[in-house]
Amino acid sequence: MNDIRKNWTWFILIMALILGVGIYLGQSRRTELGKSFDYSLDEYRQVDPSLIHYTEVEPLVPTLGKISALAVAPDGKIYVGGEDAVQVFPDGGTFPVDGIPTCMAVDDDGTMFVGMQDHVEIRSKNWEKTVWPSPGGKAYLTSIVVDDEYVYVADAGNRRVWRYDKAGGKPLEIGRKDSANGVRGFNIPSPFFDVDLGPDGSLWAVNPGYHALENYRPDGMPISSWEKSSFMIEGFSGCCNPSHFALMPDGSFVTAEKGLPRVKIHNVDGSLRCVVAAPDQFDEGVVGLDVAVDDEGRIYVLDPNRNQVRIFEEKE
């Protein structure tokens, strides 16, 4: 009987030993990762307060969800596109659309051009709808601007700007690589590709893969460009910035970035003029900060995280 007990005792002890070694190995830890494994952007989030020349005022709070498109009309009204509708401020009502607009522009006569991901819908003042055919391919429309003659549509999927007549029809292609004429082509790693019109009526387009803003004639020939790559406040960082921009009445650029969310103003030559909003004024990780400017120089920033259009005015 003693032998049986002894054998069982040994058996249990050996099993416990095996189990203990297993648990020890399972729970053993290597040392924590060292400093070289830290990823921190804190240094770049800090902005010298003297550079911030704008102050935030009461925002517009749309009743729509998932706001995604912003436009300032020639009459000063603010159009905000979101889930299945477009809302007009101040007190302009809400108009239904089928889906979530990705971009918008408003003509002098109140005609609205709404980008619906892969095609453009035109809404007359009476809200009658006309649909233009999709440019095709991998069309992903991210920005629209309209002047007296043309409608320019930025297509991130096809890496082109399409120039339509007001009546639609076959568009002219802007941005195809053409080394002979100095067109290097648009490098758009992610779906952020913005366009706007300069005070002289020429087209400005962001080339986010190069951290560049490029100026084109209406026929697609390049005029000028500037670019600035830097994590510092003077430049643009990451693989695709600025994600959005708008032109001020004096021709300077209001730019918004993702990754390090910040809104700045660059002079015509690309040098930094001032900061509108620093990274700490936005939620971490926010993307899609569309910007627009009115005739009085007020800056509107669509903040998808807060579902607001935030307004910034120059400090006195």
């Binding site: 053993s28 790693p189 951290h211 990451g238 693989c239 695709c240």
Partner: peptide, 27 residues
Amino acid sequence: ATHCVLAPSAVKCFHSYSICGYCDLCG
């Protein structure tokens, strides 16, 4: 990296080439 019973860890970075932008300035 530090808590796997294996050294180095059985967790690895995967890269989806169809999502990648092939950027020069890769974050």
